[in-house]
Amino acid sequence: MRWIWIDRFEVFESGRRAVALKNVSLAADHIHDHFPGFPVMPTSLMVEGMAQTAGILVGEARGFAEKVILAKVKRAVFHRLVRPGDTIRHEAVIEQLTDQAATTTGRTTVGDDLVAEIDIVFSHIDQNVSGLEFPEENFVFNESFLSLLNTYRRNSGERIPL
């Protein structure tokens, strides 16, 4: 399993807003344990999906120069279950962005239904944890995250001809 909980960016407005899609499938192992006979997308993984959507948005805003770490989930309120066959839509908006940190607000929907409201604080760790050394390379934004953005830019929402 790859630790990537969004499938595709639908919208990416640099420094402002991003929308990512995630298809929920019975092909995923985890959903069979959560719960046996009643598969439901775990809310924790929807928080992760929102964090990946918002984190890439925040990282891109500073040209991926910062290591953007989820510092705190300010608020996560869930309104409805998500089942296999659903397409989750995570919409993240940057609320505040400084040298040290960022906050985002987020809405997760399936179709017209509001599934969750998830607000997050991110830290630019190199600017905050004095005295601790982190690796030089940006270990947060690995290839699979960056490829999501590259795919979005290549396609710009257009279909790839067969």
Binding site: K72, K74, E95, Q96, Q100, S123
Partner: peptide
């Protein structure tokens, strides 16, 4: 915790 200070500062600014 230290991370809460970031959150508090943002909330106060707002």
């Amino acid at each position: 915790e230290s991370i809460d200070f970031l959150d508090i500062v943002f909330r106060l600014e707002k």
